[in-house]
Simulated scan of single mutants.
Amino acid sequence: MNCKIFSVFVIAALAFLTIGEGLSLRGVGVDLRCRCIETESRRIGKHIESVELFAPSPHCKDTEIIATLKGTKKEICLDPSAPWVKKVIEKFLANKSL
């Protein structure tokens, strides 16, 4: 009987630790998947307030570009292969290096 109680306790403790570890990764800003599911390729350059670049990682093989729009503060994923997005990134990197 004590063996069964001990086994249930160990299983419950392991489950709790596993769930807690997964939650703690999100709490420190580690995403376990890609942020961008869809990307925007239409020209919206004049509406962009800021741009964030996310390099490929173990959880996402893609380079992700997320733009925050003026006024609404809405975040939109940009298509890194679109020519106008490449220009926005060049400008962003040039300003960042100053």
Rank of each mutant, 00 (worst) to 15 (best):
H47I: 00
W84A: 03
K86H: 03
T72H: 02
H47Q: 13
I65W: 00
E52G: 02
F92N: 08
E52N: 12
H59I: 02
P58S: 02
F9L: 14
D79H: 09
G71L: 06
K73V: 08
K73A: 12
K86T: 08
L98R: 13
L53F: 11
E52Q: 11
W84H: 11
L32T: 10
V30A: 13
A15N: 12
T39F: 07
G20R: 05
I11H: 01
F92V: 06
S41I: 02
C77H: 04
D79K: 04
G22H: 12
C3Q: 14
I66Y: 04
D79C: 12
V28N: 10
K70G: 00
K87Y: 07
S41K: 08
K70P: 07
E75R: 14
A67L: 08
C60L: 02
K4A: 09
E21W: 15
P80K: 04
L78T: 00
E52V: 06
T68P: 03
S7E: 05
K96L: 12
I48S: 01
S7K: 07
I37S: 15
L32K: 11
G71T: 01
K96V: 07
T68N: 01
P58W: 10
C36W: 01
S57T: 12
V88Q: 10
A82N: 00
C60Y: 09
G71R: 09
K74Q: 13
K73P: 00
E21F: 15
L98T: 07
K86G: 06
E49A: 12
V8A: 15
L78W: 00
K74L: 11
G45S: 13
P58R: 14
R26I: 07
I65F: 02
I44S: 01
P80W: 02
I76S: 00
R43N: 15
N95R: 14
K96F: 03
T63R: 15
G20I: 03
T18Q: 10
S7R: 07
W84T: 01
T72S: 12
E90K: 12
R42M: 10
E40A: 05
